[in-house]
């Protein structure tokens, strides 16, 4: 136990050394912004609609001590019914089409959708075929696209902060 405490003390707070691009988005300013919009934390649900697992790794990285997503008042939830924001990765495989629709439908409004990665943006290298519907936008309304293969955690974080600045497409429609 003592060894663990010592190690924690030596590691210190790593989120102080955020990447340059995120300097404007300190945990405090982010938290204030989100609180203004929601009056509480931002809740995210992720669905892999056919990804290669590359984008998942970068989404998971948001939780590491350097990006410290939870520390900014953003957290991942286990049910779409608790979520404000849906992150979708991968081209939409035909085998995941129904699950993706159902997840989206289960979310309460207002709800935002971010298409994460080149495959979610346009189908990527897999394109459209007997097994793939291509872009996420072909299945559910998308508010913001984050390109990259995979996109960096910094790019993801910026999109998550920016997406809530305007009304979701689901509301506008």
């Amino acid at each position: 136990m003592f060894d663990i405490l010592l190690r924690i003390q030596r590691t210190g707070s790593l989120s102080k050394t955020r990447p340059h691009a995120m300097k404007s988005a300190t945990p405090d300013t982010l938290q204030a912004k989100l609180h203004k919009t929601y009056g509480r934390a931002l809740c995210i649900r992720h669905v892999d609609a056919g990804s290669c697992n590359g984008c998942e790794l970068e989404i998971q990285a948001l939780g590491n001590p350097y990006y410290n997503l939870e520390g900014t008042g953003i957290h991942f939830v286990a049910s779409p019914r608790h979520a404000d924001l849906l992150l979708v990765t991968g081209p939409v495989s035909v085998n995941m089409e129904e699950a993706l629709r159902r997840t989206y439908d289960a979310m309460p409004t207002p709800k935002w959708v971010i298409a994460v990665g080149d495959c979610a943006a346009c189908g990527g290298i897999f394109g459209s075929s007997y097994a793939s519907r291509g872009a996420v936008d072909n299945i559910i309304p998308v508010d913001v696209v984050v390109n990259g293969c995979p996109p960096s955690p910094t790019a993801l974080l910026q999109a998550i902060v920016e997406v809530t600045a305007s009304a979701p497409r689901s509301e506008r429609a």
């Binding site: 056919g50 991968g90 085998n95 995941m96 290298i125 897999f126 394109g127």
Partner: peptide, 22 residues
């Protein structure tokens, strides 16, 4: 099979020198 996205069929429309990307 949920993430089946037709990789084998997709290969057949690619060139040998590009297939590494898929």
């Amino acid at each position: 099979g949920y993430t089946h996205k037709g990789v084998a069929k997709r290969f057949e429309s690619m060139r040998l020198h590009d297939g590494h990307r898929l």
